[in-house]
Design a protein around this nucleic acid. Sequence first.
DNA 1: ATGAAAGCGCTAACAA
DNA 2: TTGTTAGCGCTTTCAT
Lengths: 334, 334
Amino acid sequence: MPKRNISIKEISALSGVSVATVSRVINQNGRFSSETEKRVKQIIEQYGYQPNQLARGLRTNKLQVVGIIVPDITNEFFAKVTLELQNNLFELNYSTMICNTNEEYDIERRHITMLKSQQVSGLIYISGDFADEQQVLQVPTVYIDRKPPFSSREGEFVLIESDNENGGVYAADELMKSGARHFAALTYRFEISSHADRVAGFRRGLKAYGVPESEIHVAQAVQADAESGYQRMMELFSEHPEIDGIFCTTDRLAYGLLDLLREQGKSVPEDVRIVGFDDISYSSMCSPRLTTIRQSVNSFGLLGANTLVSILDGAPLERNRYLLPVELIRRDTT
Amino acid sequence: MPKRNISIKEISALSGVSVATVSRVINQNGRFSSETEKRVKQIIEQYGYQPNQLARGLRTNKLQVVGIIVPDITNEFFAKVTLELQNNLFELNYSTMICNTNEEYDIERRHITMLKSQQVSGLIYISGDFADEQQVLQVPTVYIDRKPPFSSREGEFVLIESDNENGGVYAADELMKSGARHFAALTYRFEISSHADRVAGFRRGLKAYGVPESEIHVAQAVQADAESGYQRMMELFSEHPEIDGIFCTTDRLAYGLLDLLREQGKSVPEDVRIVGFDDISYSSMCSPRLTTIRQSVNSFGLLGANTLVSILDGAPLERNRYLLPVELIRRDTT
DNA sequence: ATGAAAGCGCTAACAA
DNA sequence: TTGTTAGCGCTTTCAT
């Protein structure tokens, strides 16, 4: 393997100025004549010098890296948000370490420990479990999608979430209007605020139509994926075959449901109407194409990155809570 | 924000031994009495000490981090491979920096530069563009899925790929057996060896049945996704409406095709038979469920991680090329 | 078994 | 405008 990277010291020797001056031109701070600048830059160019971030980070106690905690990168929705964040952060000169927790508290803890020993500057939490509040709070953090449980200390963190509750209302509306009369919500763990809020909105929406609480069935899947959705709905249908309008708090859950209905020979939307949540790409391709609530992936990415970087730059926070609008995408399942 | 991490120096003071000894017990090398060990560990525990990886990395010139270059994390196949790699690497005590290139050469170059200035120990390339051979070769690297173009220097790198060619043969077989007579391959850029190999295998398979080369249509999509597949096949069908057996070198391309056929009112597999490649999760859920060639995601992850770490540990390579078997998953489209 | 000390590459006072 | 120097937290000789 070829020669390793040269160091600032060698540049200093090569250019005949001190390391301090070299550092100054690299970071473009302090003063230096345009002539030395030219000479130094020349050498840097010529040798393809790249500053050692470890040394810099050690010295400044700040590495240009932020950690992203995400439950399941395999879920296209999270993948897209993560990707957007990464792109935006990269433009702002930060690298990212993406950590997948698989929704496991313990793994999350280990990741946090690792990130901290890696001296990351900040953290972005996408729908996490928030292991070890103490640990987490030592680092500037932005929360996306899911409220952290430390709500007591308002103002100490930034939260960016979709308007989940209104999403639920839209779903209720849409289901009702397309003729459903017996309702269910297929969802995931209620400790996850986004899911809880969606269902709350769904309830509120139905209430406006006079549907009594007691007639709204709620099924919680073990995982937020198709298989679990399939499984859970099979159980629910066997108890309540009359259900004909279902709000799935995640598109992936809806895919499982769709699969089940196909097997059972029920037709969509004639026998059963469905609304999902997320609008991931398969939702516009599967057959029937899924009616769903779209979240703004781009806004998550842009806001998340910008907000975290402002915090890191010590800028005063404009706000510490963002509620992003969602949108109903009407397709074939309603 | 609470107190920062304590350092080895403070532990030294607290425990009454020198920093050198503290370092020894932390890294479990050199000698120390079991008594000092106990005392030091006690303090570490008590203060929740975590070593500063930057300092360690600066000193040893080796950070326990590896970079993963991936074209599109939004593609479930890549997401899964990346995740497996990350999990395995984590167990081997390495963190990962996942870098998405969006198949853009320039972005790839910038990521490599960043990773190197971050002093990563190694690199895993998943189906990359291999920007700047010189740069890349300075760091131990494992290539997954796609052959690097520097094949001249066999032995200087490790390549792990699926048996793409045989996958193509299986596809040809399956299509033929299910009654197709007019064939096409819907694929992506041929500079990507995996795609080229799949098509080569497809050709070979058909040749065995006496299908002349000239009758096998090959359509290359602009991107490896559903929309591009849809687009490209629309063009091909307008020229060759007789096509009734299509091998898509990626499941996502097949989804676009499926969408198109639905629109055109052609039925699958009666009018047109389809075989995909990857077996991502939607392939077993969409309607009709996609017949496809499954790659071994787990093997990619396990082999990739283990091989890279062996290299980093200076172990001699057992082999520098792995060809993983693929498997035909027969479903509704053939 | 343990300590002293040098040094990894860089930044930031402080001096000149 | 530029240079000297200390020091970030750690590992690793070399002594003892």
